[in-house]
Simulated assay, not measured.
Amino acid sequence: MDKPIIIKRPVYTYDRGTFISKSEKVVTEYPLTIQIHGEEFATVVCTPKELEEMVVGFLASEGIIRMYDKDVKSLSIDEGRGMAYVTLNHKPDVSLHLHSKRFIGSCCGNSRQSFYFHHDVRTAKTSLSTITVSAESCFQLMESLQQHSDVFKETGGVHSAAICNSSTLLVMRSDIGRHNALDKLYGYCLMNKISVRDKILVFSGRISSEVLLKAAKIGIGIVLSKSAPTNLALEMAEELNMTTVGFIRGTRMNIYTHPERIVV
């Protein structure tokens, strides 16, 4: 049986000097351990939905696989045990990984980044995208992302991300971990052979270096966010030929890198 994404919990709400007993919806936090050829590779804390996509996207972003149909022999999920069993058509190259087993929490912090910066040279891609998007479309895409973020509306506890063309959301995913939401998108694209060179990433959270690198690994050339970027993310975006746009709110936004892709 599929694990619920949202559950109700009893809470006491304090309002104007009074405690009120009620129930509130909270998002599920679920640990999934990934095994490759019977060996534990990583445990990812995530939202229990689109787990196969997340595993595929995660392994691709780590450089373990490149193509889903050629590299993955089998993939099965045991939700009851919290296990993902992966068999590849080749022996995985884990020689450059820092640890034989890692725990990746739902929050993105320095412990995760210390892993990424040792390996991203193999998997981050310089964007060759020639797509442009109008300023008005940036606002419309962000509004559409927020309108369709149903789990966030109910719980306030997830990040949302979507792959888009210049006018429409094509596929959207949500997760308690922003990196997981991006892995789910990556996995979906690999499993369905969707080219992303001419696509746009619309994202609900801040553009950290990790988010920027995830987008680069997917192959995205334009990243739109309603939140702020970090300086390191912008330095990477400049080098990787990626357009970053932040603080998309109302009728205002900031274009930080490679502004030639945003047109009036």
Results as ranks from 00 to 15, higher is better:
residue 139 F to E: 02
residue 203 F to G: 04
residue 112 R to N: 10
residue 187 G to F: 03
residue 207 I to E: 01
residue 198 D to E: 12
residue 204 S to C: 09
residue 215 A to S: 13
residue 141 L to Q: 02
residue 199 K to T: 03
residue 208 S to V: 02
residue 83 M to V: 15
residue 142 M to I: 13
residue 142 M to Y: 07
residue 162 A to P: 00
residue 172 M to P: 00
residue 96 L to Y: 10
residue 160 S to W: 01
residue 119 H to F: 08
residue 112 R to W: 05
residue 210 E to P: 00
residue 215 A to L: 04
residue 160 S to A: 15
residue 175 D to H: 05
residue 165 N to T: 09
residue 140 Q to S: 10
residue 113 Q to R: 11
residue 91 K to H: 12
residue 165 N to Y: 08
residue 132 T to P: 00
residue 185 L to K: 07
residue 177 G to D: 02
residue 127 S to L: 03
residue 215 A to P: 05
residue 181 A to F: 08
residue 164 C to Q: 01
residue 157 G to K: 01
residue 87 T to R: 11
residue 100 S to N: 15
residue 111 S to P: 02
residue 198 D to Q: 07
residue 166 S to R: 11
residue 195 S to F: 14
residue 189 C to D: 01
residue 211 V to N: 05
residue 150 D to N: 08
residue 130 T to P: 01
residue 91 K to I: 12
residue 186 Y to K: 06
residue 201 L to I: 08
residue 137 S to E: 15
residue 158 V to L: 11
residue 159 H to N: 11
residue 103 F to I: 14
residue 197 R to S: 13
residue 123 T to E: 10
residue 147 Q to S: 10
residue 137 S to T: 12
residue 156 G to T: 00
residue 91 K to A: 10
residue 184 K to W: 03
residue 86 V to T: 01
residue 82 G to Y: 10
residue 214 K to A: 15
residue 175 D to R: 04
residue 163 I to C: 02
residue 192 N to P: 03
residue 134 S to P: 01
residue 92 P to M: 07
residue 87 T to E: 15
residue 203 F to V: 10
residue 136 E to P: 02
residue 107 C to T: 14
residue 152 F to Y: 15
residue 119 H to S: 10
residue 151 V to I: 15
residue 136 E to H: 11
residue 147 Q to C: 01
residue 95 S to Y: 08
residue 206 R to G: 12
residue 136 E to I: 12
residue 163 I to L: 12
residue 166 S to W: 06
residue 143 E to T: 11
residue 99 H to W: 06
residue 151 V to T: 12
residue 97 H to S: 07
residue 190 L to I: 05
residue 106 S to F: 07
residue 103 F to Q: 11
residue 119 H to K: 09
residue 184 K to V: 02
residue 171 V to G: 00
residue 189 C to K: 01
residue 110 N to A: 15
residue 117 F to H: 13
residue 194 I to K: 13
residue 183 D to M: 13
residue 182 L to S: 06
residue 94 V to A: 03
residue 128 L to G: 14
residue 87 T to W: 14
